[in-house]
């Protein structure tokens, strides 16, 4: 299980959980960041915000915010759901 910031561009993870305050969780949940949803990183340059694709949409996420999104990587032993 890794934070979204650990993913390279092109890598996909399945959302495990969101850490953070209620408003943060609720906002991301509305955008489709719900457990089990696949998220693909489009841009991650080590510094600055990320761009990720979730539920057909490109979303820019601040680095701090992306660090609070925990995902399973494909092939991760913990992953219980395979990517569809």
């Amino acid at each position: 299980m890794v934070p979204l910031t650990a993913l390279q561009p092109g890598q996909t993870g399945l959302i495990h959980r969101l850490r953070g305050g209620h408003r943060f969780v609720s906002r991301l949940a509305a955008l489709g960041f719900t457990p089990g949803a696949p998220v693909t990183v489009t841009r991650n340059h080590g510094i600055g915000p990320l761009i990720v694709a979730v539920r057909e949409t490109q979303v820019a996420l601040g680095r701090g915010e992306a660090g609070h999104v925990l995902v399973y990587l494909e092939g991760d032993g913990d992953a219980t759901v395979s990517q569809g």
Binding site: R23, L31, V59, G62
Partner: peptide, 9 residues
Amino acid sequence: EQAMFIMEL
């Protein structure tokens, strides 16, 4: 709090 940056492209 630092502002959250969550924005649809």
